[in-house]
């Protein structure tokens, strides 16, 4: 049985998902945000992290709302790390969180199907596990932040 650590992320609107232990670089509390015009409603802010300008993705708005209807009440932002190819440099992007991430243990026995009512995670869910009787999708960060996925969104 394989067991590994993961970060359980809480998003606005009651959404939950997980990423691998090494895929969450830092959590920032109330960083300065800058709004960039002519950007999608779920990704209109940037912040400065280690001299880089990072997008701040609002996953709840991307998945559940057609407009900016889900209000982010906290100023907790998770900085995610991903790689498109294992030979490439790590890249960073950030996401609005609804509270601090939880460090949890996950094992093979917890694997489950993504419930029908959470199908919106499907395009970028690597798999899903059950945690406290809740299905938690594991986010494929590289795909979520890829050219391919974001081009599909604009065609849809």
């Amino acid at each position: 049985m394989t067991e590994s650590r993961a970060w359980l992320l809480h998003f606005a609107g009651g959404l939950k998902a997980a990423v691998g232990l090494h895929e969450m670089s830092q959590v920032l509390i109330s960083p300065t945000l800058f709004e960039i015009p002519t950007t999608p409603y779920y990704s209109s802010d940037v912040l400065i992290f280690q001299n880089r300008i990072l997008p701040v993705l609002n996953i709840s708005n991307m998945l559940l709302a057609n407009k900016k209807t889900i209000i982010v009440t906290t100023r907790v932002i998770g900085v995610a790390v991903y790689q498109h190819e294992s030979t490439e440099f790590s890249q960073y992007a950030s996401m609005y969180l609804d509270g601090m991430p939880e460090n949890i243990m996950v094992n093979d026995n917890q694997i489950c199907d993504l419930p029908k009512e959470q199908k919106y995670w499907e395009p970028f869910a690597l798999s899903c596990f059950s945690y406290h009787e809740t299905a938690i999708p594991i986010i494929d960060l590289a795909y979520l932040f890829s050219e391919e996925f974001n081009a599909i969104k604009h065609r849809a």
């Binding site: 800058f34 960039i36 015009p37 950007t39 999608p40 940037v46 400065i48 974001n150």
Partner: peptide, 25 residues
């Protein structure tokens, strides 16, 4: 300058890159 991240791109946006300048982006 830094390329605009793909999650921030829209088909009609004229913005291609971002840049830290003074206290602004």
């Amino acid at each position: 300058p830094q390329e605009l991240h793909v999650v921030m791109k829209t088909p009609t946006s004229p913005i291609r890159q971002l840049l830290r300048y003074q206290d602004k982006i």
